[in-house]
């Protein structure tokens, strides 16, 4: 008897219904899958497929009605180059969502410190939206966000909305300002002592380039955050997304399945080892 195999790695077609320019090299895509996918939880990712080119893992930044998925992508490789050519009505393939996201259940009743660097805000945005939506479930919200230049900040059009969330703050910084920039200049770790969320009864959620996360961990530990109060979202080559292809391993973990979000204590032993 003949049989079909490999269904786990089969994408569903999804239509581009909107494209928003975020920064000179970053766009936000709104995809409408033609078959219903599982509802992504904050911190999860999908695999986006361009036929004839390949797939790439991209974190989910938001969800909309009718299964719409919002994903923010930086043009950095071949696949994203093709993706950027798509306009409204264009098609991609999507699989997912995959992975373990931010620990919402641990955040309940606690203060939340969101720390993003550059495009690292993309997987954190759903947490901000979640706190906004179910405000009473969570304690104080501090969002610390930094980018290299003001033009590289994502979601600028939403910053006022973040600021208007009750009992919250948004602290921004850039490595280099420009003529319009009047805010902080410096790396995101310098914002940590300024945040009103303090380590007592708080959880810090961190995503950004690995070097930024390293300095952030050190700064958080200086403030008194423990290893189990810090969560990181890791980037690796999550080729299959379902823990089978092996590419995304960090130590004994498959980042696609055991992560991409990890409590710091679980990965600490490997996190500082060069090219582990």
């Amino acid at each position: 008897m003949k049989e079909v195999v490999g269904s786990k790695l089969t994408p569903v077609p999804a239509e581009v219904i909107e494209v928003v320019d975020e920064t000179p090299d970053t766009k936000t895509f709104y995809f409408k899958p033609r078959a219903r996918l599982e509802n992504p939880r904050p911190g999860q990712f999908t695999e986006i497929y361009i036929p004839g080119v390949g797939e790439a893992p991209v974190s989910v930044s938001g969800t909309g009605p009718d299964g719409v998925i919002m994903q923010t992508v930086r043009s950095i490789g071949t696949l994203t180059e093709y993706l950027f050519k798509l306009e409204k009505g264009g098609l991609v393939g999507i699989r997912g969502p995959y992975g373990r996201g931010w620990p919402l259940e641990k955040l309940e009743g606690r203060d939340v410190l969101v720390i993003g660097g550059g495009i690292g805000l993309a997987p954190l945005r759903p947490v901000i939206k979640e706190v906004e939506k179910n405000r009473s479930r969570y304690g104080r919200l501090s969002i610390l966000y930094g980018a290299r230049t003001p033009s590289l900040l994502l979601y600028k059009y939403e910053f006022d909305e973040y600021r208007s969330i009750p009992d919250s703050e948004l602290l921004l910084t850039v490595d280099r300002g420009d003529e319009t920039w009047t805010g902080n200049v410096g790396v995101v770790t310098e914002l940590i002592p300024k945040a009103t969320v303090k380590p007592e009864n708080a959880i810090a959620l961190v995503c950004g380039p690995e070097i930024m996360m390293r300095f952030t961990i050190k700064a958080l530990e200086r403030e008194g955050f423990r290893e189990n109060q810090i969560y990181l979202s890791l980037e690796r080559r999550m080729k299959c997304g379902v823990g089978l292809c092996g590419h995304c391993q960090v130590g004994p973990y498959f980042v696609c399945r055991h992560g991409p979000v990890f409590p710091y204590w679980m990965i600490k032993k490997y996190f500082w080892v060069d090219q582990i």
């Binding site: 950095i76 490789g77 994203t80 080559r237 090219q275």
Partner: peptide, 16 residues
């Protein structure tokens, strides 16, 4: 290319 991603490489050295 095993641990290579667009814009980065997690094990670029052979010893790793």
């Amino acid at each position: 290319s095993y641990a290579q991603v667009a814009g980065g490489h997690f094990r670029k050295d052979l010893w790793a």
